[in-house]
Amino acid sequence: MADADAAAPTDEERERLAGALRRHVADGRLDLAEFEVRVARVYGAATRAAARAALDGLPPLDASPSRPAARRKRTRHGEAVRIEPHWVATGEVFRDPSSGRVMRVWVDPTDGSRHYGQADGH
C-alpha cells in the first residue's frame, strides 16, 4: 500500500466519498440499507484505501465540474493544477513531448476521472 493510501482520510475526502455514494443512491444503484453500510465504512475507515473501498463494485460517476470555470493556472491540456490527496496514482507515466516533463496519470476514485501531474511530486 502506498504511503498516501495508508494515511487517514481527511474530512473533505470522507465527505466527497459519501457524496459519491449519495449520487449512486439517487441514480438507483444502491438502496438505503446498502448506502448506510457503505457510508459507515467511509466514516469508520482508518486509511484512505479503506475509505475508497466503500465504492468497490460501483461504476465511476460522470465527472461534473464542482464550480464554474474561472481563470485557472495555465497548464497543458489535461494537466492538474494540483494533485488532490484522494487521487490514486496509476502505473502510467509518460514524458510530455512539448515540455519534456515526466508526468503521471492519477484517477479520482469518486468519479473515475483521469488527471495528469508531474511524476516527481504534487
Rank of each mutant, 00 (worst) to 15 (best):
K73T: 02
H122E: 12
H122G: 06
H24L: 07
R104D: 09
R95Y: 06
R71L: 15
H115N: 04
D120H: 08
E84A: 12
P9D: 12
R52A: 15
E79G: 01
W87P: 02
G19M: 08
G117D: 05
A20S: 12
A54I: 04
G19K: 08
R114Y: 05
V39E: 13
H24T: 11
E12S: 07
A119I: 00
D108C: 03
A6Y: 06
E34H: 09
L55T: 10
H77D: 14
A80E: 11
P60H: 09
E79N: 02
R114G: 00
T110I: 05
V39W: 08
D31R: 13
H24E: 07
D56M: 03
D56W: 03
E15P: 00
P97L: 11
G78E: 09
S66P: 06
D5S: 14
A40N: 10
A18C: 03
H115D: 00
T110H: 00
A46Q: 08
V37W: 12
D11C: 11
L17M: 01
D56T: 07
A50G: 14
P65W: 01
G121L: 01
G91S: 11
A63Y: 15
A18H: 03
L32W: 13
R101P: 01
D5Q: 13
R16C: 02
G91W: 08
R52V: 15
A26Y: 06
G44H: 12
S66N: 06
V37E: 15
A33H: 04
A26V: 05
T110C: 14
Y43G: 06
E84K: 06
A53Y: 01
G121D: 02
V88Y: 04
R74Q: 14
L21T: 07
R23D: 03
V105A: 03
G121T: 00
F94Q: 01
G100Q: 12
P85F: 03
P85T: 05
V81W: 08
V37A: 15
R95I: 14
R48G: 11
A70Y: 09
H77F: 14
A63V: 14
A63C: 13
E36G: 05
L32Q: 14
H86K: 00
S99K: 02
A70L: 13
L30G: 10
E79I: 05
F35L: 15
M1E: 02
